[in-house]
């Protein structure tokens, strides 16, 4: 429990850091910290496979791509994000309003789920289920969820073919 509190606090602090940092690179690095603490939380519930995949996919690929893009377009400081000096209501344009409503809705949903116990159904010992083990995940993934799995891989293949087609140099006639 003690470790959970520590990691949860770090994750929260990192999440706040992501949205309050003035430099995009700092935001990306805070996001990395957030993902790393999430991986630690996964390990604490015996989901080691998920933790490793979290690090490989998010730290190894997604954050690297974020950093790459930020560096390519210049990682300068954002000094005036949408008119910082204006009053709060004047800055509340309609996309921000929608985002605010959706964010509050998500918080309410999570809070309701926690309070009503809907999110607590899997509080049994995860290790006893073997949830964290690769065998258990593979057994479920390639039997019960084989079709969604294959569909996801086709989606990725389409994306890859699309990228190759776009990257082709124009044919010289």
């Amino acid at each position: 429990m003690f470790l959970f509190v520590v990691f949860a606090l770090i994750a929260l602090a990192a999440a706040v850091g992501v949205i309050t940092s003035r430099k995009p690179v700092y935001s990306a690095l805070f996001l990395l910290l957030n993902f790393a603490t999430l991986a630690a939380l996964y390990i604490m519930v015996e989901a080691q496979f998920l933790a490793a995949v979290q690090i490989i996919v998010y730290a190894g690929a997604v954050i690297v791509l974020f950093l790459f893009v930020v560096m390519l377009i210049g990682g300068g400081e954002l000094d005036d994000i949408g008119g910082r000096n204006k009053k709060f209501l004047a800055r509340l344009t309609w996309p921000r309003g929608i985002a605010l409503v959706l964010g509050l809705g998500l918080l309410v949903a999570v809070g309701y789920g926690l309070l009503s116990g809907q999110l607590m159904t899997a509080t049994n010992d995860a290790a006893a289920f073997g949830q964290g083990s690769v065998q258990a995940i593979a057994a479920v993934l390639y039997t019960d969820y084989a079709l969604p799995f294959e569909l996801a891989s086709i989606l990725l293949l389409v994306g890859m073919i699309g990228a190759v087609a776009l990257a082709q140099p124009p044919k010289k006639d």
């Binding site: 990395l32 080691q48 933790a51 690090i55 730290a59 190894g60 690297v64 950093l67």
Partner: peptide, 25 residues
């Protein structure tokens, strides 16, 4: 003796990439 030992090696290796990018940038 992690049950994801081989995967752990890959995961730790990907942290190196981040560190190198941080240093370079």
């Amino acid at each position: 003796n992690l049950n994801i030992g081989a995967l752990y090696v890959v995961a730790v290796g990907s942290i190196t990439t981040i560190a190198v990018i941080m240093a370079g940038w």
